[in-house]
């Protein structure tokens, strides 16, 4: 018996022994597992693969501290939309890209930019926030950007609420960075004046695209 027929016969026999399961299709060469015929597959109703989280489930109240020691909460900017992003002052990759593009976007928006407040939250895991480093880092960008730090509990709560991924890179410190390297989510979130998270976009969008995204979200109303 040719080996292909032998294998098919074995598979059929095995299926029969398994209590009358559907026989293998005539063209398959089965070894070791029953074949499910295509027409027997149940249509999948759940999408496969990665889906971003439902934006309405993100966010929540927060309490952090600016470099001058002032407490900043979700209520500190009444009537304004919040552009929120996460990073760390020692970052020399995604964080400067995000804040530089955001700064350009705010310039492009002109007076419209008064409707938004940009917040940059330090997700470093040091026990004590480095306000001095934050102030120095933020000074490189648009004057309206506010850098925020917090205790581990405060920052961890925010990280959980926005499903931010952050992990310490166990690598020798890059010459391009100062201090530890932290891989982290880089989305920029838009929060409406009612403090509901309405959208998020990538940190590396060109400034013009960011302006489009910001205007589009605001146009949807609060």
């Amino acid at each position: 018996m040719p080996i292909a027929k032998y294998i098919s016969a074995c598979a059929l026999g095995a299926l029969t022994m398994l209590g009358g399961a559907a026989p293998a299709s005539s063209h398959s060469k089965v070894f070791g597992a029953p074949v499910v015929q295509q027409d027997a597959l149940v249509e999948r109703t759940e999408p496969k693969g990665y889906r971003p989280p439902d934006v309405t489930t993100l966010g929540g109240p927060f309490a952090l501290t600016d470099p001058n020691g002032r407490t900043v909460t979700q209520d500190s900017f009444p009537g304004k939309w919040i552009l929120l992003t996460f990073g760390f002052p020692g970052c020399r990759e995604s964080c400067p890209i995000a804040l530089d593009s955001l700064s350009k976007a705010l310039e492009l928006m002109g007076p419209e930019a008064d409707a938004v407040q940009t917040l940059f939250v330090d997700i470093s895991m040091d026990r004590k926030p480095d306000h001095k480093a934050m102030a120095q880092f933020i000074s490189n960008f648009h004057e309206s950007v506010v850098g925020l730090s917090g205790t581990r509990a405060q920052v961890s709560a925010m990280v959980r609420n926005y499903k931010i991924r952050r992990e310490y890179g166990h690598v020798m410190v890059s010459a391009r960075e100062t201090g530890p390297r932290i891989d982290h989510s880089t989305f920029i979130f838009m929060i409406d004046p009612q403090r509901r998270t309405r959208s998020f976009f990538y940190h590396d969008l060109p400034a013009e695209k960011m302006v489009e995204q910001i205007r589009k979200t605001i146009a949807q109303g609060d």
Binding site: K163, R165, R166, E167, H170, V171, M172
Partner: peptide, 30 residues
């Protein structure tokens, strides 16, 4: 110098708290 990771392969140690070992058993040696 070169840095090498030591981490626990148990999935619950990896994923507790979300992401990669935010609350897990992970360190390195140099």
């Amino acid at each position: 110098p070169m840095r090498y990771v030591m981490h626990c392969h148990c999935e619950m140690s990896n994923t507790a708290g979300g992401g990669n070992y935010p609350q897990g058993m992970v360190t390195h040696w140099d």
